[in-house]
Design a protein around this nucleic acid. Structure first.
Ligand SMILES: [Zn+2]
Ligand SMILES: [Zn+2]
Ligand SMILES: [Zn+2]
Ligand SMILES: [Zn+2]
Lengths: 147, 147
DNA sequence: CTCAATCCGAGACTCAGTATCGTTCCGGAC
DNA sequence: GTCCGGAACGATACTGAGTCTCGGATTGAG
């Protein structure tokens, strides 16, 4: 079973129609190892001869995010992008600032931190955003090339 | 010395001109305890009879952020806002999802986490974004009112 | 096959943020 | 205090991400 099947299965299981555009989207994001923007997908779909409307790309990403299939990341200069996710467990990502490749870093043990924050501030912490940025193994080794 | 003086002092120390608009901005953000958007400041300045151009508001916030006086946060639905900061040390914030109030939660001890991520993934981690969301003490107590 | 609900996409729209550029202001030199 | 060059300002135009609308097309349950 390839990644795109997993996406389709998740959609079906959640009661969404398995439409052409959604199948195309599933294939486009399956197996990506880097971040991508909504615009990237619009262009990629076009290039592959299976164009998907802009609005639909955004709508699909919204659904994928709700299902935990992708996660939206907020890059350094404020731009937004997506990375594919394993929906199973709570985790975070590290994203390469040069090539965009991203990796799941697992759960970094936030529960105790959250509890400590609640104890010290009186806030009730309900969610968090945690993202790491740096250089992936490939980009660390290479001489300063282009992004 | 009130908060706005501290901002002006930081600007001066970094070699920036102390202009009228910047003094206005300094006063507007001094002592805020909640998040605010660039637009909020545009309107607040107008209301106080000391209007500041939109472009200038963005430019000032950019400088303030570089000086560590404010920090840009990325809210749940993707909107961006700012919170005032103590520039002294590494820290993060918890922001109330209902009223916007925010508090510094200190350094949560990320260095060991960062090192562990580097060891496991091969990435060299250079920066991170960590934000907590929840309900502040006031909003916890109140019956479910509106955001 | 039928039909209602879901979904699609073209295009208009919004809104944050950026770029341009002529004018104004700041502050160091004298 | 005056002068002057560079820094900063703000009006305005522009960009680009993301949303909304709505008539028409698809989907899948029965
Ligand atoms: Zn987490
Ligand atoms: Zn890389
Ligand atoms: Zn963001
Ligand atoms: Zn609150």
């Amino acid at each position: 079973m390839n990644g795109s099947d997993a996406v389709l299965q998740a959609l079906d299981h959640a009661g969404y129609h398995l439409t052409g555009p959604r199948r195309a989207m599933a294939q486009l994001i399956a197996g990506r190892q880097g971040r991508f923007s909504a615009e990237d997908l619009v262009h990629a779909a076009q290039r592959e001869g299976r164009p998907v409307g802009r609005a639909t790309v955004f709508r699909s990403l919204e659904i994928f995010e709700a299902l935990g299939l992708v996660e939206r990341v907020h890059l350094a200069r404020g731009e937004h992008a997506y990375v594919v996710c394993d929906p199973a467990r709570h985790h975070h990502h590290v994203v390469c600032t040069r090539c965009g490749r991203s990796t799941d870093v697992g759960d970094i043990g936030i529960d105790p931190i959250t509890r400590s924050i609640e104890a010290r501030t009186g806030f009730r912490v309900e969610s968090h955003r945690i993202e790491f940025f740096g250089l992936c193994p490939e980009c660390r080794g290479e001489p300063a090339a282009r992004a």
